[in-house]
């Protein structure tokens, strides 16, 4: 997807769609505890936003992840998840991901649970989004390298 495709109508329609996609993804991520949704779905919707903006503007899109950054960020997302578990262990927990021992102390105890769940969902969202963009990059690059089919 080096160069954009589609005419005027597709461009205008997708341009309208992308900001709403991002806002909806953030909503799903932040309020995933109350409604169906969560990290995985938020990451997938965010990657739909990146995909749409790549369809419009190609490589010059503003909301875009380029090159090797996506591989690195996928690892970072997984690391955030594991690091939350390590945080609880540093706080003195008996087992992994015991949110009662988060280093930040908050008074009603399930507030700490909510914080830990939010951190973990951010990690999952980043990992899912970057993995999907990785796959898209790989498929598109393979198609561009092979050229036309005889």
């Amino acid at each position: 997807m080096k160069e954009p495709f589609g005419g005027l109508i597709l461009n205008v329609a997708f341009r309208l769609l992308v900001p709403f996609t991002i806002v909806y993804a953030i909503y799903v991520l932040c309020l995933g505890e109350y409604s169906p949704g969560g990290g995985f779905q938020a990451g997938a919707v965010l990657s739909v936003g990146v995909l749409l903006s790549r369809l419009i503007l190609g490589e010059n899109a503003k909301f875009n992840v380029l090159g090797k950054t996506s591989v690195v960020l996928a690892g970072v997302g997984t690391f955030i998840y594991a690091f939350t578990g390590w945080l609880t262990l540093f706080g003195g927990a008996k087992f992994f991901l015991d949110y009662n021992y988060m280093p930040i102390h908050m008074e009603p105890q399930h507030e700490m649970h909510a914080l830990g769940i939010f951190l973990i969902e951010i990690g999952v969202a980043i990992c899912v989004m970057m993995t999907i963009i990785n796959l898209l990059d790989a498929i598109v690059k393979r198609g561009a390298d092979n050229g036309d089919v005889e």
């Binding site: 505890e33 109350y34 991901l97 009603p108 993995t131 990785n134």
Partner: peptide, 30 residues
């Protein structure tokens, strides 16, 4: 767990260790 959604509570709090390896398996597959 402090979350009103039981699915979120089970997946991420009671079985958080499971979900961690799920995420890393997906990263490795990608």
């Amino acid at each position: 767990t402090g979350s009103p959604n039981i699915v979120t509570g089970v997946i991420i709090d009671y079985r958080g260790f499971d979900t961690m390896w799920e995420t890393s398996v997906m990263f490795l597959a990608g």
